[in-house]
Design a protein around this nucleic acid. Sequence first.
DNA 1: GTCGAGTGCTTGACATCTTTAGCAATGCTT
DNA 2: AAGCATTGCTAAAGATGTCAAGCACTCGAC
Lengths: 115, 115
Amino acid sequence: MENSLGSFLSRIRNSKGWSLRHVESQTGISNSYLCQIENDQIREPSLQKLLKLSELYEISYPELLKQAGYPIREPNAHTDVASRSIPQLENLSSEEQEALVDYLTFLRSRGRRRR
Amino acid sequence: MENSLGSFLSRIRNSKGWSLRHVESQTGISNSYLCQIENDQIREPSLQKLLKLSELYEISYPELLKQAGYPIREPNAHTDVASRSIPQLENLSSEEQEALVDYLTFLRSRGRRRR
DNA sequence: GTCGAGTGCTTGACATCTTTAGCAATGCTT
DNA sequence: AAGCATTGCTAAAGATGTCAAGCACTCGAC
């Protein structure tokens, strides 16, 4: 559940502050179906759906396929760049960057671990 | 008909002199289903099936996906590289990643707007 | 000839994907 | 508080993938 496709997509959508119906209006994917995907009730959504989501969410399509557990054979798809990628933290506004950096500084200053 | 996925797969199988049931024994794909694929009665076989066929037939998997009309796309440069250049937000621990994503979700949920 | 094995193919049943209609809960506006 | 919009979510139905069983045909061995 932690690393599932559903929670992955859910985190991204929520991090962007978008509702299920907003994503539906942009992608044509019904909000109910999107909900089922995010709750891991759909094992294998079609590639067309995943492509549309990757475009709207501005995340790497092959990376999303990987998250979905689909077999992909990209000759040189390797880890060095991808491993540092945090899709949820992409495309930040300048205000958000500042807020996050401040928050990270705060986190590290108190040296606490997560709940 | 001529350039369809079905005729494409059928041509390869016949050129190798293999029966439907031989391919079934090697891939686990039922001969009846394979027959339907070759006769274009199946629009979108699963990636697992296509992968097995590409392995047995010794053809390129991405090439086969292309033949099947699946969307295949290389990673987009702007989503992969540009948005990641926030030096303070690199090399995060997993706890920090999660905390930041949660915090960002919180930030954006307060300013949620729809268009 | 006929018998058995092998061939491509069809049918019916089941599983999964995908949508439409609608629900309860929350929030906003007056 | 009342009323309306929006949220995530579910149930039922339709469309499609997938398989097991079985069909009709061919062909070689006896």
